Each structure stands twice: as structure tokens, then as C-alpha cells.
Amino acid sequence: MIEFVYPWAFVLLVVPVFVTLFAPAYKERKSSIKVPYFARLVDVTGEKPQSGAVLLNRNNIQRLIVAFSWLCIVTAIAKPEMIGAPINQEKSARDLMIAVDLSGSMSVEDFTLPNTTNSSTAKPEQVNRLIAVKHVLNTFVKNREHDRLGLILFGDAPYLQAPFTDDITTWQALLNESDIGMAGQSTAFGDAIGLAISVFEQSDTQNRVLIVLTDGNDTASKVPPVEAAKVAAAHDIKIYTIAIGDPTAVGEEKVDLEVLAEMASVTKGKSFQALNSEELLDVYAEIDKLEPQQFDSLSFRPRVSIHHYPIVLFVSIYLLALFIVNIRIRLQLRKQLRHVQSSSNPGGIS
């Protein structure tokens, strides 16, 4: 299908009609020469003498070429475009921010990674909490390839490690480069929620989800976690909290399950507790069910400008006309030359 960007340009098609009807005929003066042998010159050239003004007229072929050439020029001005078949693209309808605790208590080695070998006698690998979180998160995000992911790391203060991106490989690299204590030894997940809110505000996506992983209670936030969660709810952000610490611990390492549950409830999310890698995997599987991937379908038709084709056609016709006129003039000159030769030697050579 062909569409024109400037269809109003076809009004220019009537311009030659108005020029022909209302513009005066072109006139020019030429110098004349008086010769004493005019009659002989007429006989030699074969031209018939005329008197007065001479009005140059075009034949029908010339009129057709001029009209078609003007049509090509006007069509090019209208800028025709070839419209292709519709192309549908699916874009993620969700921004998913993950906030990971990097406080000192994440170094406790009370998690085991699943046995990935075929040997039944191999002992499970004992790792710290952060390594377990990284392992499970890497598995989780592989199944969220259509979501835009962000990453916040928090300790004494929150830091935006990765803004929202659909580059899962880069996101995983930034997660794997994080280490315990690089954001401080305390836990400030209330401020982490505040940072997530500010990042979400820069996004146009309406479906917003925040997953917070922590193994301690809030000890360094300027804004209490529950108050931050209320602000998040006002911005349509749903929070899933995952407690990965020992609930029987005391002091800064104690997980405040009640606060985490209230944060999730305020934002219509859900609170989870994971004491080992298997439970952490189950948590992410549950989040997958609660937050299935959503897509915005975008449809567009590719447009390719073809305005150069009428120009090429016009130039081709113009060059062809020049070629034909040139051939015609050469034939006429040869004819006149033969006529002159036959007139100058009427009896031939004896």
C-alpha cells in the first residue's frame, strides 16, 4: 500500500492549466538578414517563407511528455511512502526492582546450595547468605527476561547498582560483583524503599514491583520501613519482602518479621521467610505465580520513502526526449546537406 505524506501537493497539478489560460504567450525579437539571393536560399534550404510573428506549437507527443513529467514532479513533492505489513512487538509491562542487603550479617554461612552433580555421595556446599541469594536470583531473573530489572544494594545507605534495564546479562554481572560490607555493616532497608520509589518515578510503567531481601532489622534508615512502604503504596508499588535471617537471632541480626509483614500488607504484596536455598527457590517460584509476566503489545507499519522513483522516471523521460530530438535534428541536417549537394551539382559529374 502507498500513502502520501503531503497529499495536498497534488493541487499543483492544475498550475500548468492556469499558466496556459492566463499567462501571456512568450514573445522574443530576433534580428533578420537581408540577402540578395533569397529565392535561391529558399530553394537550397527547402524552407517556405513566412511573414509576421511565428507561434511555436508543440505536437501531441510533446504535450504528453510535458504533462507526464509534471505529474512525476508533483508526485515526488507529495512524498509517496510504501507501507509494509503490520509488525507486532511485545514489550514488558512491568518494572521489577530487587533490593539486596549487604550488611555484615550476610556473611553467616548457614545456607547450602543444591547438589548439581550426579554423585549421591557429594556433600552440599555450605555458603554464606549472600552467595545463596546470588545463586537463586540468577536463576530467578533468567525466567524474567521480558521484565525490566533494577538492582539496589543497601547497608548503611542504599545505592542504585543498576537502573531499570532489559539487559539481563549486565544485570547479573552487577549483582555478582557485589560483596558483603561494600555498602556498610548496618541495615537501612527503609531508605532502600525510598530510593526505589524515586527510581520508579522516572519510569512510565504502571506495573511496579519491589522485592526486598534482608537478614536483619532496620538499624540505619532515616525513614521507618513501614512509613516508606506507605509512600510506596501511594505510588502503586507492590512490595514483596523476603526474610533470609535466623528469626531466633538477637540484636542487629534479628529479623523483624512483623515489620516486613506489615510492609508487604500495606502495599498489597506478600511477606516470605527463607531459611535455606530450597525455601528461597520456593519463594521466587511463588512470586512468579503471583506476578506473571505482562506485556504491552506494540504494532507499527514500516514506512519506506519511494519519492525518488518519480524523479528517476522524470529524468529518464527527459533524457530520452533529448536523445530523440538530437537524432531528429541530425537526420534533418543530413537531409538538408544532401539537398544542397544535389542543388549545387544538378547535372552530376561527367
Rank of each mutant, 00 (worst) to 15 (best):
W70F: 15
V74I: 13
T75H: 05
A76H: 05
I77E: 00
I77Y: 01
P80M: 00
M82N: 11
G84W: 03
G84V: 02
A85E: 14
I87R: 12
N88I: 08
Q89G: 02
E90I: 01
E90G: 06
A93Q: 13
M97F: 10
I98P: 03
I98G: 00
V100M: 06
L102I: 08
S103T: 10
S105I: 06
S105M: 04
S105N: 05
S107I: 10
V108K: 06
D110S: 11
F111L: 04
F111S: 00
P114C: 11
P114H: 09
N115Q: 10
T117H: 02
N118T: 15
S119E: 10
S119C: 07
S120V: 09
K123S: 13
E125G: 03
Q126C: 01
V127K: 01
V127A: 02
V127N: 04
R129W: 11
R129L: 11
K134Q: 15
T139F: 00
F140K: 09
F140A: 11
V141Q: 03
K142A: 13
K142N: 15
K142L: 13
N143W: 00
E145V: 12
R148D: 06
L149R: 00
L151N: 09
I152F: 07
L153G: 15
L153E: 13
L153D: 06
F154D: 02
F154R: 06
G155E: 05
G155Y: 04
A157Y: 10
A157Q: 09
Y159F: 15
Y159R: 12
